[in-house]
């Protein structure tokens, strides 16, 4: 097991290097002169040259990559081209919002998806089953930006129950949580759909497996069987899906944070795309990819730990 963990960690190295090269090259592949973005209309040529030199954009490529990596290792992504503020400081101020949004959505996804899947499996072909599956299907067929607008129109504007945008403190204060419910729903429902379908089919499969039949033959109380055996075995594969969904939710933050005006990393990056502020885009891309890779590694290890049938080759 330890060796397996070590090898998996080792395999991350080329991935991380590759991601860093890709993100670094962005600014150089992109058309246009990044300095023009920073110039007011009334600026002169000398003004422009001064700014170019200040940003180090007059250096050769390998040197720029070297300093990019050296700084990135120290979590220093340089300064925003547009604002001159330290990108890392700005990002650390915004990650909490994005993480909280991700946690709320993931919680919504798990708390609605898995119970729905279980109910559907237990009452196969019943109304509950059909209802759950239609809900699940709608969950991932509704584009999340459309769902977000629908929720805003309905709960924010028509009913006035929940705030339509913005944040108010962290989620452990009730007020803060309130602001993240609509965004969390709009982002989490599609994952809930995926989880419900997965849970249902895993449950159905496990229920038919022999040892459950054996347990049933032995006359154990049916609900206990389901809980002790079926649920456990059905949920283990779900852990991998939760890992993937975590990444999906991180990526979805771009749209959700934009629609709900949440001051998170996603909206920061979208604004940076419009302003062509590459240090920010690079930093967000790099960090999100790293978090995703690490989360997946964690989930795989957890899976390996939970499911003794996995072989480590």
């Amino acid at each position: 097991m330890h060796q397996y963990i070590l090898r998996r960690m080792f395999m991350l190295i080329p991935v991380v290097i590759g991601v860093s090269i890709l993100t670094f090259l962005m600014i150089h592949i992109a058309p246009g002169d990044p300095v023009s973005v920073m110039l007011p209309d009334h600026a002169t040529s000398q003004d422009a040259e001064l700014i170019r030199a200040r940003l180090g954009l007059d250096q050769p490529l390998p040197i720029q990559y070297y300093s990019f990596v050296r700084n990135a290792i120290q979590l220093d992504f340089g300064q925003s081209v547009q604002t001159g503020r330290r990108v890392s400081t700005e990002l650390f101020a915004r990650w909490p919002t994005t993480f909280q949004l991700t946690i709320v959505s993931l919680t919504i996804a798990i708390l609605t998806g898995i119970p729905l899947g279980i109910m559907a499996a237990l009452k196969r072909a019943s109304f509950t089953d059909h209802f759950s599956m239609v809900f699940a299907l709608l969950g991932f067929c509704l584009p999340n930006f459309f769902l977000a607008l629908l929720l805003q129109l309905l709960f924010g504007l028509q009913l006035g129950w929940l705030p339509m945008y913005g944040v108010s403190g962290p989620i452990w204060t009730g007020e803060g949580l309130k602001y993240l419910i609509l965004p969390g729903l709009s982002l989490g429902l599609s994952s809930a759909g995926v989880l419900a379908r997965m849970t249902r089919s895993n449950m159905l499969e496990v229920i038919q497996v022999d040892y459950i039949r054996t347990a049933r033959a032995k006359g154990l109380w049916e609900r206990r069987i389901i809980f002790k055996h079926a649920l456990k075995n059905a949920l283990i594969p779900i852990t991998t899906i939760v890992g993937v969904q975590f990444g999906f939710l991180l990526g979805g933050a771009f749209i959700t944070e934009t629609v709900f005006a949440l001051p998170g990393v996603g909206r920061y990056a979208v604004n940076a795309i419009f302003a062509r502020d590459f240090p920010i885009i690079q930093a967000v891309t790099l960090m999100m990819a790293l978090i995703f890779v690490l989360a997946n590694l964690g989930v795989d290890l957890l899976y390996a730990y939970l499911d003794p049938r996995i072989r480590y080759e």
């Binding site: 080329p14 590759g18 890709l22 962005m26 592949i29 771009f254 795309i273």
Partner: peptide, 24 residues
């Protein structure tokens, strides 16, 4: 395959958004 691994390191929409951000 290492290149593929790199591409797979970008979750959800992130890779598409990054590419569009670069190409325009």
């Amino acid at each position: 395959m290492r290149f593929i691994d790199v591409l797979m390191a970008f979750p959800g929409l992130l890779l598409s958004i990054t590419i569009v951000a670069t190409l325009g």
